[in-house]
Design a protein around this nucleic acid. Structure first.
Lengths: 166, 166
DNA sequence: GTCGCGCGCGCAATAATATTTCGTGTTAGC
DNA sequence: GCTAACACGAAATATTATTGCGCGCGCGAC
């Protein structure tokens, strides 16, 4: 809701919980400078308003044996809305595919995929992805190494922007 | 540690905490079928062993006014290790850049960026990224819409694979 | 085989945290 | 200036986390 403007305390709460989602409410309250009860109420409100979608443990995929990470650029034959939706739904059902974003430009979709090894991915690629209806082209790139991986919101930019407005 | 093999209960714990990182320990214990104290001990062990890197609230960027998401493919002039490291370090310091992965193939890096609006991103692109030392080429693609975004490990594939081994 | 030994569980007690209840101060609107 | 809505914080209560044992199981030594 754009009408529901957040105050500095709410933004601090979001930033803190983004950094550490299991922080206790008393610790959070201390950090944002209010007492525990109103702090908890704010968190609940933020959750219900959709600012917080959920909480997740960040599990190390590599430690669990998922050695391979691949970006796949997919071009479709038809870009009619119905066909786009069908492809998106298919991506949601492939658990190797962790992300699927529709792009502008020459490529229609970018997929981020994870697999235990290359052969598992290759099987998926040749037997599932490229064979899927409406898929015209697939170009893949293996991730050699990750340099930064911090899903989330850059709160520093948000604060900077807000202070400039004021 | 590849020596430290996880048992089915540990994997269930990881899967549950990935799905809901704020689940109480008693609830988690109930779900994995053991009592609370050993469950908590397992969680702590998994954290210390690095299987769990941390916990994060999933904050809705769009609700906070970050309307623009962009993938940038970056080519460098030099791929010498020292130069790669320099570029990676720079990415870590750009808060617009949330992810940075080194790729094989024609492109050296893929960056996932987030910005409040297009002009903010364009400024970053023209004033920072393309002007940075060693950057040879940048090709950007705007995300039109997201169809799936579930960072994490596909535990169903892990279980399938383990049962096949047995 | 059987005797320990180590490991991991669960019960019970304690400490910490979450959550509810309620009284108070502050502020916007009239 | 008065009132109503709102958000805070103190205190009480309910839940949860955490610690401290004692027990049973499985495994290796003898």
């Amino acid at each position: 809701m754009p009408g529901t403007r957040l105050d500095p305390i709410d933004r601090k709460i979001l930033a803190e919980l983004q950094a550490d989602g299991r922080m206790t409410n008393v610790e959070l309250a201390k950090r944002v400078g209010i007492s525990a009860p109103p702090c908890l109420r704010r968190v609940r409100t933020l959750e219900e308003a959709g600012f917080i979608r959920g909480y997740h443990a960040d599990v190390d995929a590599r430690e669990l044996g998922f050695e391979v990470q691949v970006f796949a650029m997919v071009g479709l034959v038809s870009q009619a809305e119905a066909d786009l939706s069908v492809f998106e739904e298919r991506c949601r059902n492939w658990s190797l595919v962790r992300e699927c974003h529709m792009l502008n430009g020459e490529v229609d979709f970018i997929l981020k995929c994870v697999a235990p090894d290359l052969s598992t991915f290759q099987t998926f690629l040749t037997e599932e992805l490229t064979k899927a209806d409406n898929v015209a082209s697939v170009k893949t790139s293996l991730v050699i190494r990750g340099a930064k991986d911090e899903p989330g919101v850059p709160f520093d930019i948000l604060e900077e922007r807000l202070s400039r407005e004021a």
